[in-house]
């Protein structure tokens, strides 16, 4: 599940799919602002440190203050002050060039803990998620890490489906999130920004040859933009897999910490087809039915 633009409703849809789909593993790939846990209340069973970056440190006793390190650093991370280099940990990208160039061997690289990743139990199945520390890099690597773990769990426990809540944007963590997926579901909204960002994210999925479908959330907010989305997708041969009307129930479900599709059922664990649900919840159920068909078709083509 990706969107380009943030705040279009990815997490609410993923949490709802978590409740509707069977036999799946859930992954939150929005590692710098993860929210899926707020709707699925995971119980953490494994916690791992994420060590992917390294940072330069200077041994002052060996440093002669020649300043080579500061000259070669292209990230502006090394400033010379009082004859010695100081390293700005936020700017340091861990490229190691300074450590190689230092004539005195005074710079070494140390591993940095950039965050954590977790394996959890939820009432809907296993979930893998992560938390990147603020201002850290390597979000793409952390995404790959949680996806690798999710695949391992799926294979070892016989789950057929992995549902991934992706990050906004079209950059490094998004590219990591969609590599090798069977379907990218793009959640958009009928706003000028939603349309613009959906077009960029569809360019990205096409670029990597990832099969895509679109869901229009808050579809009744602006009919003209909703039509633009439909026309655009139709012209590109992209299916509109569902349309979810604007419904304040969606917000209330988030506030209650429940997948919107279950909200209002009274007994969230046994939502049946006859449960009384709001318009948005019904639309999400239809969306899931359609996505399941697309996935089955995809699986059949192998």
């Amino acid at each position: 599940m990706i969107s380009g633009k943030g705040g279009t409703g990815k997490t609410s849809v993923v949490a709802s799919f978590a409740a509707l789909a069977e036999n799946k593993v859930l992954v939150d790939c929005d590692v710098d602002a993860a929210d899926l846990h707020l709707l699925l209340s995971p119980e953490v069973v494994e916690s791992h440190e994420f060590m992917a970056s390294r940072q330069a440190t200077v041994d002052v006793s060996r440093c002669t203050g020649c300043g080579h390190c500061s000259e070669v650093c292209r990230f502006g991370a090394i400033a010379m002050a009082y004859g010695h280099p100081t390293i700005d940990p936020i700017s340091c990208e861990g490229c190691t060039v300074c450590s190689h160039i230092c004539p005195e061997g005074a710079i070494t690289m140390v591993d940095v803990m950039s965050g954590h990743w977790y394996v959890s139990h939820t009432r809907f199945g296993p979930m893998v998620h992560a938390k990147l520390k603020a201002a850290e890099e390597n979000s793409g690597k952390l995404v790959s890490q949680v996806r690798r773990k999710a695949r391992e769990i799926a294979e070892s426990q016989g789950h057929e489906l992995i549902i991934t809540d992706g990050p906004p944007g079209v950059g490094c963590p998004v590219i990591s999130s969609i590599s090798g997926v069977d379907l990218a579901l793009i959640v958009t909204e009928p706003t000028v920004a939603g349309v613009h960002d959906m077009e960029r994210v569809l360019d990205l999925t096409c670029h990597f040859g990832v099969e895509s479908a679109v869901c229009i959330n808050k579809c009744d907010l602006d009919e003209a933009n909703a039509e633009r989305i439909e026309d655009y997708c139709c012209a590109r041969g992209i299916e509109i897999a569902g349309k979810i009307p604007f419904d304040e129930e969606m917000v209330r479900a988030v506030v209650r910490g429940e997948p919107p599709v279950l909200y209002g059922d009274g007994a969230p664990d046994c939502a049946g087809p006859d449960s009384v649900a709001g318009e948005a919840a019904q639309a999400i159920r239809q969306l899931w039915d359609r996505v399941a068909v697309l996935l089955a078709r995809d699986a059949g083509s192998f």
Binding site: G6, G7, T11, D32, A33, D35, L38, I90, L132, A134, A135, E136, E137, S139, P167, P168, G169, G171, P173, V251, V254, V255, G257
Partner: peptide, 28 residues
Amino acid sequence: APPGTSCPVVASIKGSDYCVLVTEPTPF
């Protein structure tokens, strides 16, 4: 600035004199 808290956000807001954080009143 872009959403998130990782490197693109740092590159965007570093050196600002003030940062306005826009949020919505939900658990997210």
